[in-house]
Design a binder for these strands. Structure first.
Lengths: 332, 332
DNA sequence: TTGTACGCGTTATCAA
DNA sequence: TTGATAACGCGTACAA
């Protein structure tokens, strides 16, 4: 099997020593121009390509590869985050290996192991919903690592989060201003930290306004648009909900489907923006944060960590902003 | 700097030779159970992790890493494709490094070089719109590689494509059936092969129906929704278009925006599905292909190639199917 | 079944 | 400025 020419081949072709080629390849300046030219030629004609894997096993050298583990690359939320990470990482000369954990803790741990065996210089991880190994139990040396979107697991590390509670409260306040009194909460499992926080924000806003929290209006465990649509339908027909806070974009889309099927809508505010929120009738109001920026910040934090710069804050929280588009209003 | 324990450390701790540890780690069966147990313990207590980068430089061994280069990870179209690739790749024990070329040929070539230096076992590439290096000019050995979504460049390799022309023709036929006679084409630059093919399908369908192709109705170079919205507005007010074929999803979204701004719509069929096509009023009819499946097929083709199995077909073409939802109809 | 010795492609030391 | 030689962590002939 042909593995391509090596430095030795180049050295022979250029009639210089191995070390001189190494110097040339690594951009050393103290090289006789004549030899440099011979080496350049040899590299050209042989089609030499350096072997970074071989270089990386030398002491003091690294792979200049980073690992990113997210829930699902196919989910626009995470791919946007990945894009933000990628931008920063490439700007600093690293490449990125990406993998989806499918929110499975075991799978997540396997991917961590695999990437560490591949000797990535650091990891950016969106922790799976629940469970998984504690970082405190891992054998040293622990790699530089940063957690995003959800709190770091036990023994974790620096974390970049969105302000879920404040964002949710902001959404609910808006619905209250519009005169709603029976605001439904529709979201995924409470075991997901973002969901629990958004739920807290929802309750805090209600309490602050003197509105009682009614358990029958709070719905967790909604994984798909279809489930969300059925849930919203039930909330409207059986529980007298007069507004909906959709705690993620699947819930928003489900609510919109339910409205369409019913031919009737109530005020709606969602959490997380989605591609065509502006195309719905009326356009959908959401609270959302800059996901790509969240990824970029996580990447910068990790790269700093690799360079030995400890982050000032152990946890960075990004604000969620309101994008008011009309769906929070009552029907005219 | 601590680089973690090596096989030598494990061998010493377990009082066995290096080779026995190597055998153990690689799952050889012919090991004295007693020694195996000692090694297991040593691995456990030392927290040994194998160094795949070091292993990969041995003859006959590889990195078990694959590279994927796409236009933009943040674009749902490509992230869906990436997810399809990832699924197959992980199932066969590989990890995937992903990178966005931003449709820049030079950037694409740089990424190819970097991944080859990192010694990936193969590459999956969405070729940038235009230009870039010819594969025929690259020095051997050329890595296993597969191209997706657009035709392979000069000297390329196996390719997985969608049937753009047939899909576009199908969309236009549907609009013709609804009685449209002045069907506008709205899409991105003709330099993008998918766009050129969709344009061809558009013209072929018109000609087959005996409808003349009118240049003023054909619009290339639309990159954003905003541009598309303005273009559609002009088509409706100044060129008497009575239907729109939107050649990608940005064009679809732009058309929907223009309709909303005007408070009036004409029949519309788009190419490529989008997240909330079912939420628009009416739901948007599209022709689309299975992007994740396209990625999965590309991945399988590459993995086969790595195993020495040449693909039967040099080019695999996936059908585009019609998802009829109502937007192709005239107003009642 | 186990171990010694060597090579993979690269960079670093140190003497020339 | 250059070059011989020794690592880096690992897998494998080949000998024991």
């Amino acid at each position: 099997m042909d593995r391509g020419p090596t430095m030795i081949d180049v050295a022979e072709a250029a009639s210089v020593s191995l070390k001189t080629v190494s110097r040339y390849v690594n951009g050393a300046t103290n090289i006789n121009p004549e030899l440099a030219e011979r080496i350049r030629e040899a590299v050209q004609t042989l089609g030499y390509r350096r072997n970074l894997a071989a270089a990386s096993i030398r002491p003091g050298w690294t792979s200049r590869m980073l690992g990113l583990i997210i829930g699902d690359l196919g989910n626009p939320y995470y791919s946007t985050l990945a894009r933000g990470v990628e931008r920063e990482v490439h700007a600093r000369g690293y490449i990125l290996t990406t993998a989806s954990s499918d929110e499975d803790a075991t799978r997540n741990d396997e991917l961590v192991d695999r990437m560490l065996e591949q000797r990535v210089d650091g990891l950016i991880i969106v922790p799976p919903y629940t469970g998984g190994r504690s970082w405190a139990d891992l054998p040293p040396p622990l790699p530089p690592r940063v957690f995003v979107d959800r709190p770091a697991p036990d023994g974790g590390g620096p974390t970049v989060l969105a302000d879920n509670a404040a964002g949710a409260a902001r959404a609910v306040e808006l619905l209250l201003q519009e005169g709603a009194t029976r605001i439904a909460f529709v979201g995924d499992s409470e075991l997901i930290s973002t969901m629990a926080e958004r739920r807290q924000g929802y309750e805090a806003a209600l309490l602050a306004a003197g509105v009682e929290v009614e358990p029958s209006l709070v719905n967790h465990g909604v994984h798909t648009d279809e489930q969300a649509a059925r849930t919203v339908e039930t909330l409207l027909t059986e529980h007298g909900a007069d507004a909906v806070f959709a705690a993620n974009n699947r819930a928003s889309i489900g609510a919109l489907r339910a409205f369409r099927a019913r031919g009737e809508r109530v005020p709606l505010v969602g959490f997380d923006d989605f591609e065509s929120a502006e195309l719905t009738s009326p356009p959908t109001t959401v609270v959302s944060h800059d996901i790509a920026e969240m990824g970029a910040i996580a990447a910068r934090t990790l790269l700093d960590l690799i360079d030995g710069v400890e982050p000032i804050e152990r946890s960075i929280v990004l604000p969620a902003v309101l994008r008011q588009r009309g769906s929070e209003k009552r029907l005219q």
